[in-house]
Design a binder for these strands. Structure first.
Lengths: 298, 298
DNA sequence: CAACTGTTTTTTATTTATAAAATTCACTCA
DNA sequence: TGAGTGAATTTTATAAATAAAAAACAGTTG
């Protein structure tokens, strides 16, 4: 069998939707090229879609003029509901779920074929995902042998946090050197207020913390971008997200504490108290590290 | 067509070589299992190899006892000379050579198929290599579209050096906190002498510097290992190696300067002069950064 | 000549097939 | 019981095939 023409079908639907909202019968449609760029596909696909519309008697081509003959009806659309997600996504979701449900534990071995079957994809898709995923440093593979979950030991956490410490301290120091009139101070202030608000309704909305956490780090990154630091932060986020799933029982307390620590850090930052902010961040990182060790290490 | 039995053929040759050096006619050979572990292949392959030796009348199996009938001769060996290297390696070498020869420049696009043909491998091998390689941050790809060399601009160098600065300063500081009697001080001293020696014959042996450079960083890493920092150093090394190829004219001066700077740093370290070592390292990193910018940016 | 179209060529994504090699299973014998 | 064997099963590595989609090419027209 060969690949499905999802790009084509999706384009037809998008086109119909677009026509329904912006055109009326008798209008001329834009050129192939502009449609292609507008919907981010190649011209080949656009042409195939237009041909399809012609065969539905919705469009007529005359001398390279595309005339809209009639408005599209519901039955003209492709049923796109059973297009499965991109393979890549399927594999990822399945693999992550295996990890989070504890079916794959540190030290375990697993095969590509097995994953491919379970996630209803091909070994190629699986393998490519695993290669990409291996940058997180959680899996490894020897040639002609299966993949293996690396041991998630204390040394790993220590090394992760060593780097995180370096990076976050660096980001903090950079932020504090921003000029007084930088817009980022405004943003930081807004974030401070958001934290305050969340802290008041923590007992119900504690699941909202990760969003703020992400926003905070995003702000520091935006103020002084660095692709390498940013990439590393992905790893941190993943490892966190990944292991905290194992023990959701203490999530509320953890988040409550973290919010307070964030408020402390941001408060010191807003007061330009470099030393205080550093100490507060130090404390925050340390809490996080201990908490990770407690829940994650077997 | 399907895959070649290289593992098998190589095992046969290794086995013959081993027998030639360690056994004599009439000896019993070790069990399948021990051979398999010794030569790091599966038992299946061992059995196939032994069967092959039987068919050559070199070995006879009786009741699971493997007896050596005769010593192997030259003609028993497989001709392994035309086994091409592993696909992975082929792709890598080809791709790197494209980059180093300047045929692939920042901003260029290239296709998987093209690379596969040129390097005499498959698109799968190419794609897997490219995915792995993309962690260096030098290439990128959109779905359904070709790969593209990222722009190697000043921001990239700055970001690279920002992280390098953080890491190297951190490593230095850790090293200086080693106890007086740590063996690493001895190693550092030996390295100091090596540097001194090289500096005397720099005009002829300047190409030997990268080895020392690598050794220096290796020593710092060994004293305080961190997989994330280590991995990042791979990126640094590669980017360096990669871009310096573009301008070999000044290599001698660059290396001569770098050796002096290393001597300076190590000297200060051995004297436990923290402040001096930091300054010296700072200077070294700065030289390297400027030099990279000068040769690499278009 | 620049934007467009029709046509042709390449390239990517995905599936299938197959031998090599690894792994598992069931059994044997010291 | 535990290391070892023979046979069966699974998995990996690799090639090949094909349709979808992208990109390149060659004209055409305002």
């Amino acid at each position: 069998m060969s690949r499905k023409n999802v790009v084509f079908q999706k384009l037809v639907n998008t086109l119909l939707e677009h026509v329904k909202n912006h055109c009326k019968t008798g209008d001329y449609l834009p050129s192939d090229v502009s449609l292609a760029t507008q919907f981010n596909v190649s011209r080949t696909t656009v042409r195939k879609a237009i041909e399809h519309l012609e065969s539905l008697d919705l469009v007529r081509k005359m001398d390279a003029q595309k005339t809209l003959l009639a408005m599209p009806e519901a039955h003209h659309f492709f049923d796109v509901s059973q297009h499965s997600k991109p393979k890549e996504k399927l594999v990822e979701e399945h693999f992550i779920s295996l990890i989070q449900s504890g079916k794959l534990k540190p030290g375990d071995k697993f095969s590509e074929l097995e994953l491919a079957r379970q996630s209803d994809t091909s070994t190629v898709a699986v393998r490519e995902f695993l290669i990409r995923f291996s940058r997180f440093g959680l899996i490894e593979k020897n040639p002609r042998s299966q993949w293996k979950m690396k041991n998630f030991d204390e040394a790993f956490v220590d090394q992760l946090y060593e780097v995180r410490h370096l990076f976050e301290m660096h980001s903090l120091s950079n932020f504090l050197q921003l000029p007084e009139d930088s817009d980022y101070w405004q943003e930081l202030n807004a974030l401070f207020i958001e934290h305050k608000q969340l802290s008041l309704k923590m007992d119900t909305d504690y699941e909202d913390f990760p969003r703020l956490d992400h926003k905070f780090h995003g702000l520091l990154q935006k103020a002084h971008p660095n692709q390498f630091i940013n990439e590393f932060y992905d790893i941190i986020s993943f490892v966190f997200h990944y292991h905290y799933q194992w023990d959701r029982s203490t999530e509320r307390e953890r988040n409550a504490l973290a919010v307070q620590e964030h408020i402390n850090i941001i408060g010191k930052m807003l007061m330009k108290d470099y030393h205080g902010a550093t100490l507060a961040l130090e404390k925050h990182l340390n809490t996080a590290k201990q908490s990770l060790k407690k829940t994650a290490i077997l």
